Amino acid sequence: MQNSHSGVNQLGGVFVNGRPLPDSTRQKIVELAHSGARPCDISRILQVSNGCVSKILGRYYETGSIRPRAIGGSKPRVATPEVVSKIAQYKRECPSIFAWEIRDRLLSEGVCTNDNIPSVSSINRVLRNLASEKQQMGADGMYDKLRMLNGQTGSWGTRPGWYPGTSVPGQPTQDGCQQQEGGGENTNSISSNGEDSDEAQMRLQLKRKLQRNRTSFTQEQIEALEKEFERTHYPDVFARERLAAKIDLPEARIQVWFSNRRAKWRREEKLRNQRRQASNTPSHIPISSSFSTSVYQPIPQPTTPVSSFTSGSMLGRTDTALTNTYSALPPMPSFTMANNLPMQPPVPSQTSSYSCMLPTSPSVNGRSYDTYTPPHMQTHMNSQPMGTSGTTSTGLISPGVSVPVQVPGSEPDMSQYWPRLQ
């Protein structure tokens, strides 16, 4: 039975679970980093996980050691009161100082060594604690504590007292930064006198190289990059290397530039699409467009005044059976039934097929058609009795279509119309 579990990581490298990497692998990681390889490249070359490479390099940059820390136990506290007071002093002298600059000053002034120097995250935590204590304490208590930490007896009751030896409130920041720059020169002199001055200088240079600022491109470089971006948004590694040799930039910087440029292009394309949609959409909808001609068919113009009344309900007709019959029939052209047409008796099958359309009241044959006459024609229609054979009435077949029909004066039988409509 094995005491430890061995495995293979996602890159194909072998590791022992819970145990640190061998010293030979750690040394190779540092050597590759000094030669300029990126952590992701080191991870692929040595088949070590990216997190492990970053952790080893980060500890090497901070402490200069590649040895693993002790497994188990607690780390001794490195942010001692003396170190905290120095950090507060540096922050007062130059409020814009960075944590890694404070760390360098602690090393250069001999406050800490490589073994007990606090990390950048520890210094940031100390600065946050100082800021929170400043908010919790009152103004007087804060000034007393700062005077105690600074070891001075001057008056701290006013704002300019934060910067000793100065009279203009805006000047101390520059003086403090100048003092810090002077301390940086002392850093070089002190570290050069040490035993491991060369190694420390190499480590600091490598650290500065990794902690780079934003790349500033010249106009020629920007023009070359934009020209390549117009050709393709995704250049391959050969195109990037050719462009890197042409404009004297690292291939990694060119790759990052193209990634950022593609993101910018997507944002601009989104804005262009929004403007295009806004320009195509009308600002207001016309009133006429809300009524579609496919839904509402136009009603033909009436030929006679009587045809303006298109349904039985508008003429005072309360018989719903006839109203439904007229509205359900398709529109037909106007025609006239003459008196000489043969009077065919209704076929029983045809009569039964339209039995649902006729009223059940037996008085329908005896009703006159003056009910369908509009009010303004009552006088004219009353002067001509319906009993004469020459009287013409208008029957409504569908809305908007008038059918003048000659009705025999002897017997106005409704059943004569249905064979004609089939």
Rank of each mutant, 00 (worst) to 15 (best):
Q2G: 11
N3M: 12
N3F: 11
N3T: 11
S4Q: 13
H5D: 07
H5Q: 12
H5S: 12
S6T: 14
G7W: 09
N9A: 04
N9Y: 04
Q10A: 13
Q10T: 06
L11T: 02
L11E: 04
G12C: 00
G13M: 01
V14M: 10
V14R: 15
F15Q: 04
F15M: 02
V16F: 15
N17Y: 15
N17A: 15
R19E: 03
R19F: 03
P20K: 01
L21G: 03
L21E: 02
P22F: 00
P22D: 06
P22M: 05
P22Q: 07
P22H: 05
D23E: 09
D23N: 12
D23H: 09
T25C: 06
T25G: 04
R26G: 02
Q27C: 14
Q27S: 08
V30N: 02
V30W: 02
V30F: 03
E31A: 08
E31N: 12
E31V: 08
E31P: 00
A33E: 00
A33N: 06
H34C: 10
H34K: 12
H34L: 14
G36K: 04
R38Q: 03
R38C: 05
P39V: 15
P39T: 08
P39H: 09
P39K: 14
P39L: 07
D41Q: 14
D41E: 13
D41T: 08
S43Q: 00
R44E: 06
R44F: 05
R44N: 03
R44A: 06
I45G: 07
I45V: 10
Q47T: 04
V48Q: 00
S49V: 03
N50W: 01
C52Q: 01
C52E: 00
S54I: 04
S54Q: 03
S54E: 02
S54N: 06
S54L: 04
K55Q: 02
I56N: 01
I56M: 00
L57K: 02
L57A: 00
G58T: 15
G58M: 13
G58P: 05
R59M: 03
R59P: 02
E62P: 03
E62V: 12
T63D: 02
G64L: 04
G64Y: 05
S65L: 05
I66A: 02
I66S: 06
R67G: 06
R67K: 13
R67T: 08
P68N: 03
P68R: 03
P68D: 06
A70I: 08
I71C: 15
G72E: 03
G73H: 05
G73S: 05
K75R: 10
K75F: 03
K75H: 05
K75W: 02
K75Y: 03
P76H: 02
P76I: 06
P76Y: 04
R77Y: 04
A79P: 00
A79F: 03
T80S: 05
T80V: 07
P81G: 06
V83Y: 00
V83N: 08
V84F: 04
S85Q: 14
K86F: 10
K86M: 10
I87D: 00
Q89C: 15
Q89T: 09
Q89D: 08
Q89P: 00
K91Q: 05
K91H: 06
E93W: 05
C94D: 09
C94V: 12
P95G: 07
S96T: 14
S96G: 08
I97H: 08
I97Q: 15
F98N: 04
A99H: 02
W100Q: 07
W100I: 06
E101N: 09
I102S: 04
I102N: 01
D104S: 09
R105L: 12
R105W: 08
L106W: 04
L106H: 01
L107F: 12
S108W: 08
S108I: 13
S108N: 13
E109L: 09
E109F: 10
E109V: 09
E109I: 08
E109D: 11
E109C: 11
E109K: 12
G110A: 09
G110H: 14
V111Y: 09
C112T: 08
T113I: 11
T113H: 14
N114V: 12
N114C: 12
D115C: 10
D115V: 13
N116L: 11
I117G: 09
P118C: 04
P118Q: 00
S119V: 02
S119R: 03
V120W: 00
V120N: 14
S121C: 04
I123F: 06
I123A: 07
I123R: 01
I123G: 04
N124F: 01
N124Y: 11
N124L: 06
V126D: 03
V126E: 02
L127W: 15
L127D: 06
R128I: 01
R128T: 04
L130G: 08
L130E: 11
L130M: 08
L130A: 15
L130C: 10
A131N: 08
A131W: 08
E133Q: 15
E133Y: 10
E133C: 12
K134L: 09
K134M: 12
Q135D: 10
Q136D: 14
M137F: 12
M137V: 11
M137I: 11
M137N: 11
M137A: 13
G138A: 13
A139S: 10
D140C: 08
D140R: 12
D140Y: 12
M142R: 11
M142I: 11
M142Y: 13
M142N: 07
Y143M: 13
Y143G: 11
D144L: 09
D144G: 09
K145S: 14
K145Q: 11
K145H: 14
L146W: 14
M148K: 13
M148F: 10
M148W: 09
M148G: 12
L149W: 07
N150T: 11
N150P: 11
